[in-house]
Design a protein around this nucleic acid. Sequence first.
RNA 1: UCCUCGGUAGCUCAGGGGCAGAGCAAGCGACUGUUAAUCGCUGGGUCGUAGGUUCAAAUCCUACCCGGGGAGCCA
Length: 498
Amino acid sequence: MTYINRLSEHVDKQVTLKGWVYNYRSSGSLVFIEMRDGTGITQCVVAKDDVSESDWEAATSLRQESSLEITGTVKADDRSIGGHEIHVSEVKVVQIAEDYPITPKEHGVEFLMNNRHLWLRSQRQWAAMRVRNEIIFAIHTFFQERNFVQMDSPIFTSNAAEGSTTLFETDYFDEKAYLAQTGQLYGEAMAMAHGLIYTFGPTFRAEKSKTRRHLTEFWMIEPEMAYYDLDMNMDLAEDMIRFITAKVVEKRKNELEILERDISKLEKVAENPFQRITYSEAVEQLKSKETADMLDQMIEDRKQEEKDIKQEREEIKKEHGSAKKWRKKQIDQRVIEIGQRLDQIEEDYRNIPQWKESAQNFEWGNDFGGSDETVLMLQQEVPLMVHRWPAEIKAFYMKRDPEDERLVLGVDVLAPEGYGEIIGGSQREDDLEFLENHIEKHDLPMDVFGWYLDLRRFGSVPHSGFGLGLERTVAWLCGLSHVRETIPFPRMMGRLRP
RNA sequence: UCCUCGGUAGCUCAGGGGCAGAGCAAGCGACUGUUAAUCGCUGGGUCGUAGGUUCAAAUCCUACCCGGGGAGCCA
């Protein structure tokens, strides 16, 4: 058996492929089978004269997603996807598929999500899962090469780590238990045993969020490092993101092309240092005249674009009456695209003034909203690291900035192109008394943090760590508009099946 | 929880008081180079659910259910 991604090693030789029918066309005494086998897609050509009568019957009985084995000769052919095609000599049907619901046509999100178990076979989904795998492998490679030890934190926990988010509650032998929203506190304990560790596992948030950036179950990577301060933490986060970006570009070009990802944007990330600004500098930037002018300019740009595409639409509509059938289809498609873009522009007209207002009136001490993040990232081509945040809006375990009591040594990493926060991290508070006071101040139950405070009783050291959201990273690197396409079976509000 | 848009054939959608429609998919047929193939024919409907207004409701009104996008929260 040969795999499709190895066909170039078998040109002009006979091979046997095992897989599924991705698409099917017939033309009298020719049958064209686009066959997929998990490694790729290739076109198989069955000519009536080249196969036995029973094989010809088998070939003409095929339907989308039928499973089959094909034997034939590999020919280099530029007309065919992948640059090769198979001239078939034998066709063996494994199973004739029933009516396959996902046709090579457009479908709505709800329908595709209901058929997620089948949707995973489609090209773009296939490519995204391969990139996800590459990212996972790159993360392990990055940490393992630096002598980090991978460790698993518990999924059942007795408390909310930060107290703020809503958690999934379960019954744990008549005791309340919660699905972990982070493994961080446990990671700190393990770092005190091994120095450098990282966790890689699922986390759960019961927030009723319905946005393109949220799942109720998602995978998080949380390194924790003894004797690391905030700067070392930021260096590590930056090195890691640039490393995985470089690996994905190097090893998954084909998949990125299927996803129509602009690879040059990823190359910039891999090659350039990230900008680091403090929270206070970010606030100044938001309130600046430059930002206001930039947003005004955006409105002007939208107006011009609106004029241009409306004119284009008028022109192609005129052409429609006398156009050939294929051109009519093309025009219909373009008209739909223009309509969607105009809707987006309408939304921008409503949003941009609000963004401007939010940015101009931003008050030091507040957390950034979604629009503030968007505005901050408008002119960024690589991730932006925002550090030294007001203590009020951050978790109790973050270490105070010795140079400014109002601040904690936390850092958020924002991805470009509107993907938002992909990393949140900090240097951790290592003083026992300070932590005890803050647990009290945050109204958190002291008894469940007893073991955590022990870490400050027995050889407390400066240490730092961060959490990377895997799905947001996959969405960003793949250029996907929604995290639901970055994980095989997304769990989100109202979605438990399949 | 709130704001906003939507639910019509298997799928994507049009129809917005007066006969339930199109394209694709499915079935049958034609075609020796197709690329979402093309061409001809055929079958296919609880117009999200319940109630109301009307001579007449997919269309108007009310409530509810489901979904998309967003706010809050965050990775």
